[in-house]
Amino acid sequence: MAGSEVKRPGFLARVVKPFIHVARHALKSPVTHKYPFERIKGFERTRGYITLNMDTCIGCGACGYACPDEAIYFFPVEGRKYTYPAIDYGKCSFCGLCVETCPTASLAHTDLVELAGYKYEELVYMPSELKPINIKEVLPEVRRFLITTMTKDGPKYILFKEGGED
C-alpha cells in the first residue's frame, strides 16, 4: 500500500466532515471528573502507598536489597526485636519490587497515591507510620468514589460509593 495513492474522500467531504465530527462531540458526556470531590478507585493490583505489617515482618532486609531507588532504610522499633523498613516516598517509584520480594508478605500495596508534604521529611514514613491511611485524612474534600468501565459507546465512570467512607 502506498502513501498518497490511497483513495481519499472527495474535496467537499474533506472540508465538511471534520466540522461535523467536531460538532458531534458537543453531545458526548465529558470524560473528565472533578478530582478532589470525585475520586477514581484503583484496581486490585494498583501500586500505591505501601503498608507494613510489623507482626509478620522478620526484618530480613530483602526489600531494601531489591529496591532500585534506595528508598528503604531500616530502623529498630521500641519493644520489637528486629529492624524494620522505613520508606522514603520522596525516592520511591512505586515499582513494587519490595512487595514482590517480601518473603512473609508483610508489605502490601494500597491504591492511595495522595502523598504530599510541605517538607521532605514528611515524605519519609517510619516503620510505625506505615499503617493503612484513611483517604479522608489526606483528601478531606472527597465526596464520591467512581470506577471506570467500558461500555459499547466508550468509557464511562460509574458511581462506586457515595460519601467519604472508603
Binding site: V22, A23, H25, A26, K28, S29, P30, V31, T32, K34
Partner: peptide, 13 residues
C-alpha cells in the same frame, strides 16, 4: 464551556 464540550471535558466548574 463550548470548546470544552467539543473536547469532551468539562470546562470551568
Amino acid at each position: 464551556k463550548y470548546l470544552a464540550r467539543l473536547m469532551i471535558r468539562m470546562g470551568p466548574v
